[in-house]
C-alpha cells in the first residue's frame, strides 16, 4: 500500500501542540457533537464545521509543518469514531475532508486573514455538499429526484412562486458562507494572539 501522507518525525513542541489542538477539537466534537446529536437541532453539521474551521485556522498559527492540519484532522476523526455517539462514519469523513481543504488552502495561499476566510468559506461549501454526497452514497442518485419532486409538489400546493423558492434555497448557502467566514476570521484573530503570546514568552 503506497504511503500517501508522509509526515516527517515531529519535534517535541510540534507533537505536543498538535496533540493539544486535537484534544480541544476532539473535546468539542464529543461534547457539542453529542449534545447536538441528542437535541436533533437542524444544521448540526454546519455548527460542528464552524468549530472545525475555528480550530483549523487557529492551529495553523502554531503548527507550521507540512501535513499538520491533516494529522490534526485524522487524530480528531479517530476520536470521533471511537468516542462519539450515533453513526460516526459521516462525521469521520467530514472531519478528514475539512482538514484536507484547510491544509491545501492554508499551505498553498499562505496564512493570512484572507486565506483563512477562503478556507472557512470552502469548508462551509463542503459542509453543504457533504449531506448531499453522503445521501447519494447511502441511497443512490435517485434521492435527488425524490427531493426535487417533493419540493416541487409542496411549493405547488402552497402556491409559492419559483423565484421565492430559489431565493429561499440560495439563502442557506449564503448564511453558511457568512458564518464560515466569521468563524475563520475569529480563528485567525485567535491564532495571531497565540503567536503574540509566544513571541512575548521568548
Amino acid at each position: 500500500m503506497p504511503q500517501l501522507l508522509k509526515i516527517e518525525k515531529l519535534s517535541e513542541s510540534n507533537l505536543i501542540n498538535t496533540a493539544v489542538f486535537a484534544a480541544v477539537w476532539g473535546l468539542m466534537e464529543i461534547s457539542i457533537g453529542t449534545f447536538l446529536h441528542a437535541s436533533k437541532i437542524p444544521f448540526r453539521g454546519a455548527i460542528m464545521s464552524l468549530a472545525a474551521i475555528f480550530i483549523l485556522v487557529s492551529a495553523r498559527s502554531v503548527l507550521n509543518y507540512k501535513g499538520s492540519l491533516i494529522l490534526l484532522g485524522i487524530v480528531t476523526a479517530t476520536f470521533r469514531l471511537f468516542l462519539g455517539v450515533g453513526f460516526n462514519i459521516t462525521p469521520f469523513v467530514a472531519i478528514l475532508i475539512e482538514s484536507l481543504i484547510a491544509e491545501i488552502i492554508l499551505n498553498r495561499v499562505g496564512y493570512s486573514r484572507i486565506s483563512s476566510v477562503i478556507t472557512g468559506a470552502s469548508v462551509m461549501i463542503y459542509t453543504l455538499l457533504h449531506g448531499l454526497i453522503m445521501q447519494a452514497v447511502f441511497l443512490g442518485m435517485d434521492i435527488y429526484k425524490v427531493y426535487y419532486e417533493l419540493v416541487l409538489s409542496f411549493t405547488n400546493k402552497i402556491g409559492l412562486s419559483e423565484n421565492v423558492v430559489l431565493i429561499a434555497l440560495l439563502t442557506v448557502p449564503v448564511i453558511h458562507l457568512t458564518f464560515g467566514a466569521i468563524s475563520a476570521s475569529f480563528g485567525y484573530s485567535v491564532g495571531r494572539q497565540i503567536q503574540k503570546l509566544m513571541e512575548n514568552e521568548k
Binding site: 504511503q3 518525525k9 505536543i16 498538535t18
Partner: peptide, 19 residues
Amino acid sequence: KRRGLEEFDNVMHKAEEML
C-alpha cells in the same frame, strides 16, 4: 502508520492523555 503517518500513534496517545 502504513500510510506514512509515523507520529499518529504518539499524537493520538498524547491527545488522549490530555483529553
